[in-house]
């Protein structure tokens, strides 16, 4: 299949950036990233600079393969990352527009690569459990209601890719932060620190310059792990009850 790619090129954060048009011959069994590899090999053969894009696991778990494809974070397929997207989702002769995540808190480093370290700092602010783990406990030592463990597990599937921020018209990081707060706060091991955690993480999220949540629902529609905005309601609830109902101040 013959494709026309309009790819965002930007040399560094300060550069204004521009679209570059390239022709690529791919086949429909390739993943989107493999198609990008084909493009880059031809650019290298022509002694041109290849398109910078992030990737690592290529199996939908690391959250690095981030691009906005034809206006949709992670492309047209629901509930998948770019590395899980295959060229059979496109037709011969298609023009594909590829852009980086856009949000002030995610500045472009080069081409399609953005700096998502703001997410790391949100995690550092409280997205952990501070106990010495020692040996793994017996799985049945702490009884957990099935509903709760499922809810926590669903939230835990967040891979930190940032598609929620990319999709949000406000560049808000509420879905990501809520997934982490829910994942840890729903389980007994994480509940202990939940009052402090939620305040620290929200405070860091605000400091990073993410936008506010207007409840548009754009994030959950584009999240490759289909994290629900029910988690955002839970984050709001936890935050308010922590600020108003606990002795914790952050």
């Amino acid at each position: 299949m013959k494709l026309t790619l309009k790819v965002w090129r930007q040399d560094n954060t300060q550069d204004k950036g521009r679209f570059e048009t390239h022709q690529v011959v791919a086949n429909e069994h390739m993943s989107f990233l493999e198609m990008m590899d084909v493009l880059n090999e031809s650019l290298i053969a022509e002694k041109k600079v290849p398109v910078a894009f992030e990737h690592d696991c290529r199996e939908g778990i690391c959250g690095t393969c981030n691009m906005v494809i034809n206006g949709r974070p992670h492309g047209p397929q629901k509930g998948t990352t770019v590395c899980q997207l295959h060229m059979r989702a496109f037709k011969d002769g298609d023009t594909i527009v590829i852009e980086p995540w856009r949000a002030t808190a995610f500045p472009v480093i080069k081409d399609l690569v953005v700096d998502r370290s703001a997410f790391d700092r949100i995690i550092e602010a409280g997205g952990y459990i501070s106990v010495n783990t020692g040996q793994a406990q017996d799985a049945n030592a702490i009884p957990i209601e099935k509903d709760l463990s499922s809810q926590a597990f669903d939230a835990a599937t967040c891979i930190g890719c940032g598609a929620c921020v990319a999709a949000c018209p406000n560049g808000s990081a509420m879905l990501f932060t809520s997934a982490k707060v829910a994942h840890l706060g729903l389980l007994p091991q994480g509940k202990v620190e939940s009052s402090k955690r939620v305040q620290s993480m929200v405070s860091q999220m605000d400091e990073e310059g993410f936008g506010l949540c207007s409840n548009t629902g754009a994030c959950e529609a584009e999240c490759p792990k289909e994290i629900s905005i029910v988690n955002i309601a839970m984050l709001n609830r936890e935050y308010m009850s922590s600020v108003l109902g606990s002795k914790v101040t952050v």
Partner: peptide, 20 residues
């Protein structure tokens, strides 16, 4: 205003057809 600043630049192809 804050949200507009937080979004920064716009996409060439518009996203969020899913949001009302």
């Amino acid at each position: 205003i804050k949200n507009r600043q937080a979004k920064g630049s716009k996409y060439a192809v518009s996203t969020n057809k899913t949001a009302s």
